[in-house]
């Protein structure tokens, strides 16, 4: 090489080719027989070392009351706070003056999964879920309507709590 490559001067005891090669090969051979860290995903979804975090913010879920109605009172806070503007809410009112959502749709493609809707909800109705397997065959299946949101059964996220940052 024409240009000055800096070559470290090392004592003989630190430089080796044969020994280092053999050492390296012994190491790689040992690794063949070690337990593997691969998690074979579709079959195993959590291992002793890893489970999905309870604070994971995935696709939404609408909680329901004892009669199976959505807890939502159509207060309009979630579409208000949503930074991605992905919640469509049309409020309605019955004869007793109870407000309920006529239309409640979340576009999961627009959603940024910030979890603000869950945080702002006064009725603890809308939640982000601990869930990540969402594939569908068409794009319009990603707009979840009220019925579908209520039908979800996955656990809901426990969001991050500033007073308990480590989740203890």
């Amino acid at each position: 090489m024409a240009i000055g490559v800096k070559v470290m001067k090392r004592p003989g005891s630190e430089t080796s080719y044969v020994r280092a090669t053999l050492k390296g090969m012994a190491l790689t051979l040992q690794h063949i027989f070690r337990p593997k860290v691969t998690m074979e995903y579709p079959e195993e979804k959590s291992t002793a070392d890893w489970t999905i975090s309870p604070r994971w913010r995935g696709t939404h879920r609408m909680l329901t009351d004892e009669q199976g109605r959505a807890k939502c009172v159509a207060c309009g806070l979630c579409p208000q706070i949503c930074p991605a503007n992905c919640i469509k809410l049309v409020p309605g009112e019955d004869e007793q003056g109870n407000r309920y959502p006529l239309i409640y749709e979340i576009d999961e493609f627009r959603c940024v999964f910030c979890g603000y809707c869950q945080e702002v909800c006064p009725e603890e109705a809308i939640h982000v879920g601990v869930h990540y397997e969402n594939s569908e065959y068409s794009r319009d299946r990603f707009v979840y309507d009220l019925e579908r949101l209520c039908a979800q059964t996955h656990p809901v996220s426990t969001l991050w709590d500033p007073s308990d940052p480590k989740g203890e």
Binding site: G4, V5, T15, S16, Y17, V18, R19
Partner: peptide, 15 residues
């Protein structure tokens, strides 16, 4: 071979 003088950097003097 093991002392590493045979295949080390080629321009030790010039550097």
């Amino acid at each position: 071979l093991d002392r590493g003088h045979l295949v080390s950097g080629s321009v030790a003097e010039e550097a």
